[in-house]
Design a binder for these strands. Structure first.
Lengths: 224, 224
DNA sequence: GTCTATAATTAGATAGAC
DNA sequence: GTCTATCTAATTATAGAC
């Protein structure tokens, strides 16, 4: 709104860029910080991840974090929001790529397969969840309120319906929730350990075998 | 071996205590540091846990860590060794408390139940594992070499035998390993989240239902 | 908006008295 | 063996030039 853009010079200071350019670069910096924050928080935990290394991984400088986000804490919240949005998008995409289910049990099977594939694509999500769910904190309270409670309630309610109909084994809803999420996510959360043990859990063949196995285990042989 | 113990005075400096007392207190400090280290590392991760808070939780001072252990890193190793020893002890204890299995499949079922109970008793173990298995590091290499590789190989080999005999579902060994460990541990790793969701996964009733459910899921209805 | 420089705090580790 | 005091380096956050 104020400066006189002596454009042309691309290198050096950005003070001379037109407002459009500035905004584009600002948005890019923000995005890069979010992505870098996700890997760093997933790898080292909130307290173990430093804002310096996040900024470095994003190709910018540390004070940018306090400019684009108010604090390390706010950066974490924004990154987690971003990650759950990616989860929803991935699950929806995988569901759309499957033949439409014909009954409730098949629908649950599709959800399981879609969740397994999304968990493999986004290991950061379950890594962050498992690090935060481990001890009471403001971050845990926030994540439960904003992201996990409604997912937990939707999944347990769906299982409860199947159970009432006698369509599945008689297993408690909460037991089912944690067993399923744990079984679906650990191969990807612990992928670096699996590699040291000589196995590539991020291989397409593994992911498909894993998804099939969970459907068989939780819903029985009958579901395709 | 050297000093002249002017015993009697209990309070104040311990310089006057006899050698026996000194040794006993030293061992107690070491133990307290190990226990405190476990909860702090499990709660905040290696990098997030501070030696100051560990020492405070152990009721002693921070430099004691460098005296009793060489460094924060060595303290971590000692704590993890201690924890896996506790795991073996817990599993053995739970196995002994069960009726002896009569065939290989029942033996696997007993192992599953014993592991679930041990996982509930020692949530720190799987919390630390999941934090360390998430990214390559010297600590991960060390923990795989010293603690998880032989457990992984024993469990996958046992499943492989059952599978060859047609006694269980045809599920890949590695898929089975991570699905089972994930399903068995997440309710206890994430116990604080479960509490916020209104459920106490550390309740005896939950643990038993969980163990029964996993036996049903992985081995079928037939196994008691 | 982005940068450099720096303030204020906290980290792990060490020195030395007792 | 345990304590207090302290060193060096790293942390998050802020100030101010451009």
């Amino acid at each position: 709104m104020s400066s006189s853009p002596s454009s042309g010079t691309i290198s050096g200071a950005i003070g001379g860029d037109p407002p459009r350019r500035r905004q584009a670069r600002s948005a890019a910096t923000r995005e890069a910080l979010l992505d870098a924050a996700l890997s760093e928080f997933a790898a080292h935990g909130f307290e173990g991840a430093s804002t310096r290394s996040i900024a470095a991984a994003a190709g910018t400088h540390q004070p940018q974090i306090n400019y684009h986000f108010e604090s390390k804490d706010e950066l974490w919240r924004a990154a987690v929001d971003h990650l759950f949005a990616q989860l929803d998008a991935a699950v929806t995409r995988h569901l759309r790529a499957m033949p439409a289910p014909t009954d409730q049990r098949e629908r649950f099977a599709c959800s399981v397969r879609a969740f397994v594939r999304a968990a493999a694509e986004l290991p950061e999500l379950n890594r962050i969840m498992v690090q935060e769910a481990t001890i009471d904190s403001d971050r845990l309270t926030w994540i439960v309120r904003h992201h996990t409670r409604h997912r937990f309630e939707a999944l347990t309610a769906e299982w409860h319906r199947l159970r009432s109909d006698g369509a599945v084994a008689d297993i408690d809803d909460v037991v089912l929730y944690y067993s399923l999420v744990g079984a679906a996510s650990l191969p990807y959360v612990n992928a670096p350990e699996a590699r040291l043990l000589g196995h590539d859990t991020l291989d397409r063949g593994f992911i498909d075998a894993h998804a099939d196995a969970l459907v068989t285990l939780f819903l029985g042989e009958a579901v395709r």
